[in-house]
């Protein structure tokens, strides 16, 4: 039984599928939700199995790479920076004294060489660049990561920490654009087979500050970003569950990804937002996964999940 988008947040909390924490946009997943999300990850991995090399990244990536990719410049409001104490015993004592006295102490934890991974494909470009010249056929990859974006919100479809799976192409411009088109269509078809109804629309990223209008306009004019959207938690504002992006040669230039002739490669990716798709499934098919349409259960291979384990 489908649920109205506006009722989703209350319903999934009432069912224990999503458990809020003290921080907006940071949640625990109950077993029922986690089982579906894990099944979805596996199903997407099966869907994209033939693409190419598989890389799973963690929640962090090198800071200098995020800087080189201009994430810090374009999206400083979203970037998560890792800070750690690196001091001496004396500095530790000073830190504790400051804390115990109610004084500011966070300055004792300077930024280290890591940031939180903002998108699953971001750490792959430097790895590929280190292999030397880009092969004539380019690279094709599947990548997974736990990602972070500092967007505090009580909207269950806008988590700060979430899983993202992507397929990535690095190569000649025509080839990566064709790859993006193919995988956007194939991925949308996959979601349709899961019983989800949505539309593909041109999109732009949430760039920071006054530059946002310029950057967003360029993205739309050059058709660099498309999203597949479906109503999840707000009927009036459909949620992007797939994102198909063409980076031109910007990421290749950041890391020197060149062909033998010295020309820069281009890159593109199609990303799946795992939790958002899972939420769309619960909204569309109801709160109990075993009761979902058999073709959805089969596609996700959920049939083996003991009912008692799904709350």
């Amino acid at each position: 039984m489908s649920i109205a988008p506006e009722e989703l947040a209350a319903e999934i909390r009432a069912q224990g599928l999503i458990v809020p924490t003290a921080v907006s946009g940071v949640v625990a997943q109950g077993r029922g939700f986690a089982e579906v999300a894990d099944a979805l990850v596996a199903a997407i991995r099966r869907l994209t199995a033939g693409v190419g090399e598989y890389l799973r990244f963690g929640a962090v990536m090198p800071r200098d790479q995020a800087v080189a990719m201009r994430y810090f410049a374009n999206f400083p409001q979203l970037l998560g920076s890792i800070h750690c104490f690196c001091g001496s015993d004396a500095e530790h004592r000073a830190l504790l004294r400051a804390h115990d006295a109610g004084e500011p102490w966070a300055d004792a934890l300077p930024p280290v060489e890591l940031v939180l991974t903002p998108a699953a494909c971001y750490p792959c470009y430097a790895i590929l660049a280190a292999r030397g010249a880009v092969p004539a056929a380019g690279y094709r990859l599947q990548v997974d990561a736990t990602c972070f974006r500092h967007e505090p919100s009580d909207d269950p479809a806008r988590l700060q920490s979430f899983r993202m799976q992507e397929v990535v192409a690095i190569g000649q411009p025509d080839a990566v654009v064709s790859f993006r088109e193919h995988w956007l269509a194939a991925s949308a078809d996959f979601l349709a087979r899961l019983g989800l109804e949505g539309d593909v629309a041109p999109a732009d990223d949430p760039f920071f500050g006054r530059a946002a209008a310029v950057m967003a306009k360029a993205q739309r004019e050059r058709e660099l970003k498309f999203e597949w959207r479906t109503p999840v938690s707000d009927a009036a504002r459909p949620t992007a569950c797939l994102s198909a992006n063409y980076h031109l040669d910007s990421f290749a230039k950041a890391f020197g990804l060149r062909f033998d002739d010295g020309s820069h490669a281009h890159s593109a990716c199609v990303g799946f937002g795992v939790e958002r798709i899972a939420l769309a499934l619960f909204r569309t098919h109801g709160m109990v996964a075993e009761a979902w349409p058999v073709e959805v259960v089969d596609l996700l291979r959920l049939e083996g999940t003991p009912r008692a384990d799904i709350r």
Binding site: A213, V214, M215, A218
Partner: peptide, 29 residues
Amino acid sequence: WDSHATVQIIFAIEDHFGFEMTGEEMESI
């Protein structure tokens, strides 16, 4: 001269001439 460069050019022009462009002006460049 891509969109990143346009943003940098806007900021450099603003700094040099001492005014702040409107969003409409920025998008017209």
